[in-house]
Simulated scan of single mutants.
Amino acid sequence: MDRAKPLEPVSSVMWPWGHVGAGYLVYTLLRRHTGERPAGAAVLALAVGTQFPDLVDKPLGWTVGLLPGGRSLAHSLLTTAVVAGLVLALARRVHHRMAGRAFLLGVVLHLLGDALYPALRGQTGEVSFLLWPVLPMPEPELAQRFTAHLGAIEPGWQFVFEFLLVTAAIVAWHDDGHPGPGALRHGAARSFVRLRTAVRNRCFCV
């Protein structure tokens, strides 16, 4: 009798929208467990964290060629440990510890998301990027170009799964009171006031 074949995802890694959807769901569940809801600045930091490894590795690996691939430096747990120390120190200095922790949670969840599909296929060698450069990078399944990966999007089970993640995250975000955009507007307004004050002071000095 033939064994059931493991699920074959279209891509071996999670797409950006899947990362942010999974990140928000995990974060809001953790906050609700403590009796609180996600805060604006922390949500923005979380969103950036869920994309951070790709924002570093994809341009430097695929476009510039400074890294050996799109899952190397920022996808390594070794690098993440260093980044964690720097981020937590900076967060304490600027009094945004919650945002710092949310950012790091997003980074860790990104790495777990990229390891999910290879694990489901039983291809443990495909997660060697987690210990790069101690372990070699896995061989890429697609050409290391943005267009090649975008062209590989198909409405398979992976697409549906990540669509459901995003949908659930949007519902949870709505239930949480839409945290994030308000903090962004507040930060932009505060920066504008500081800039205007600096310009006025400079004019008075002249």
Rank of each mutant, 00 (worst) to 15 (best):
V171F: 08
C203T: 13
D54W: 00
E162T: 03
D175H: 09
D176S: 07
S76P: 00
V127T: 15
G122M: 01
A143E: 15
A172V: 05
A89I: 00
H186A: 15
L46I: 06
V87K: 07
R71L: 06
F161L: 15
V43S: 14
V127N: 13
G49I: 03
L150I: 01
A102R: 01
L55D: 06
W62K: 11
A115H: 02
H178R: 15
G23F: 00
R97T: 11
C203E: 14
V56S: 05
W15G: 02
H95L: 07
A45C: 07
F146S: 07
M1I: 04
T28I: 05
L73D: 07
T197H: 13
F146K: 03
A45R: 09
A47T: 14
G113S: 04
G113P: 08
L164H: 06
H33R: 14
M14A: 04
L111A: 05
W132N: 06
Q158Y: 00
A102C: 01
V10A: 07
A4V: 08
G85Y: 00
A81F: 00
L44C: 12
A119H: 08
L116C: 01
L90Q: 08
F159M: 15
P136Q: 11
F52M: 05
N201D: 13
H178I: 14
G106H: 04
A102F: 00
A4G: 03
P118W: 02
I170M: 12
G40K: 06
V199I: 08
R145D: 15
L29E: 09
V107W: 06
F129A: 01
A4L: 02
V166M: 12
V160L: 09
